[in-house]
């Protein structure tokens, strides 16, 4: 069953509904804040949960029921900082995150650490929840002469930032995390001269069979197409959701039962080769990953272009 949860405050209630329905395993959530808030409910019920795109270390740290199939923030923040410093040659970075959002602030601190280690300087700001005027922050980054604008924020904010930066004739590149890997962000950048780079879990073209299958599904299902932003571009979260689903099936096979307890015991041993790469869990419950994909927005065609595979080293 599917439950859509938008805020961390509502996560425990949604988790209780899932537990009440006697689910065998929980897939999700999309975000770290929500996952952490719901964690306790799953723990008490003895249900294993598998995070799909939540990248904060605290999701899996210090518990034995939360797993994840994606990479982590320290890794992602470092990858992006290395990319900015080495590939883009950036010296000064502007970081902007949502106030009180664990995901944003976590990534910014890992990025800052790695970027400073690479010899750069960093200016950081936070905006309040539900803010929609980002021109002031963009002006500030511009007048400070920053080379990159790092904003690992959720889609509602990132589309605004990209659209507003486009009007300001900015020279810096916008750098985003996996949350910016979304077709709505592409639409915001379409036809502008914004330079946009994002790190992500999967880039289209990584697995031809998977790409063809998903495109067929999207094009034959009107609701799926609308939810995908009205086109058939494959975002990384689609690939990750797909992999998570099959890892869960592998776990159920390994446990040979749909009992939540048995699945929880079997899950750490599961190994699966998904479309986003090999998936195996370490002692903490995190997937072992060592590279991230970097993509850039092709503003003429509203498509993502694969740039490089960047490692944390």
């Amino acid at each position: 069953m599917l439950i859509t949860v938008l805020t961390s405050q509502k996560a425990p209630a949604a988790a209780a509904v899932l537990v009440g329905k006697n689910v065998a395993i929980v897939l999700g959530s999309y975000g770290s804040g929500v996952s952490i808030a719901a964690s306790e409910t799953f723990k008490n019920a003895g249900v294993a949960a598998m995070g799909i795109t939540c990248t904060n270390p605290n999701v899996t740290a210090g518990n034995d029921h939360y797993f994840r199939i994606c990479f982590l923030d320290p890794f992602q923040g470092t990858v992006l900082a290395n990319f900015a410093a080495k590939e883009l040659g950036a010296k000064k970075a502007y970081c902007l995150g949502e106030l009180g959002n664990e995901y944003d602030q976590g990534l910014i601190s890992y990025f800052t650490e790695a970027f400073k280690a690479a010899g750069g300087t960093v200016i950081s700001d936070s905006f309040p929840t539900n803010n929609s005027d980002f021109t002031t922050y963009i002006n500030k980054a511009k007048s400070e002469g920053c080379d990159v604008f790092f904003c690992p924020v959720s889609i509602a904010y990132s589309t605004q930032i990209v659209a507003q930066a486009a009007t300001k004739d900015v020279s810096f590149a916008i750098l985003g995390s996996d949350t910016l890997d979304d077709n709505m962000v592409l639409d915001a950048a379409k036809g502008t001269d914004i330079k946009l780079y994002v790190s992500t879990f999967y880039a289209e073209g990584g697995n031809a069979d998977f790409d063809a299958g998903i495109k067929e599904y999207i094009n034959t299902n009107a609701d799926a197409k609308t939810a995908n932003g009205g086109n058939d571009t494959i975002s990384a979260v689609t690939a990750m959701g797909y992999d998570a689903y099959f890892v869960a099936i592998e776990a159920i096979k390994a446990a040979n039962s749909t009992d939540p307890g048995a699945i929880k015991t079997a899950l750490p041993t599961v190994k699966y080769t998904g479309v986003s790469g090999d998936i195996a869990f370490d002692d903490i419950g995190d997937a072992k990953r060592d590279t991230a994909y970097i993509k850039t927005a092709d503003n003429d065609n509203a498509a993502w272009k694969f740039v490089t595979q960047q490692s944390a080293k």
Partner: peptide, 17 residues
Amino acid sequence: LYFTNYPTVVPMSGAMP
């Protein structure tokens, strides 16, 4: 005027303004 400037609408868009 507002959404031309800040072109994303979410259900909470009206709360802060």
